[in-house]
Write a protein that binds this DNA or RNA. Sequence first.
DNA 1: ATGGTGGGTTCCCCA
Length: 255
Amino acid sequence: MRITTWNVNSVRARLDRVIAWLEANTPDLLCMQEIKTLPETFPHEAFEAIGYRLAVHGQKTYNGVAFASRAEPAEVTRGMPGDPEDAEARIIAATVDGVRVVNVYVVNGKAVGDPKYDFKLRWLDRFREYLQAELENHETLLVCGDFNIAPEDRDVHDPDLWRGKVLFSEPEKEKFQAMLGIGLKDALRLHNSEPGVYTWWDYRMGGFRRNLGLRLDHFLVSEAAAKRIREVTVDREERGGEKPSDHAPVTAVLD
DNA sequence: ATGGTGGGTTCCCCA
């Protein structure tokens, strides 16, 4: 089974590229983040025409997450229990081919010290509690998406430049470790300890051309799911060309 | 410390 996570940065702006990528790569499940649209304006037809079924949790303009899968997604849930009605659309979960998958777009945080940064840290506490409950209910759990945190020095092109900055500050990294602490593993690191594996490059300053990347998109997996992980790879090539997302697709292969 | 680039039911906000 192949599962891909991809922050597409607007599913409508990226539609041709996403559909072409699906046709070329045929994952069993695609987890999208930052779809930036409501379910009623999501381009359903293009996905259905190539044999994918959809489950969408969207909002206007910002955020939004969605699944596109070969098999029908079951037990679909949107958001976290206790979220207010108008909460940002950042989480969708479903069971696909017997695997429980949580698809997340974590709060960006803007800058250390900004109110959005404090909101990010608090949101991550609630998210960890939500994952703990998912773990109790599902032995084979896979959490994927844009975590907006680079966990370690080897995940950052210039750790000393980024140290203390949003996406790489100590409190954010502690929240990431706390998610591992409930019994999840960083799936890419099960089989790859190399530095320089990035999933995001800023549009600005020629970030991709100069390979100024960070690893922000992750698969966190339960013990049972970890045993089934064969590899996790980044499709760097998809970050190039005309009108790319600023994130590359990341694919996990499971037995 | 600043700015640069890209997307959105856009003329500012978010990343």
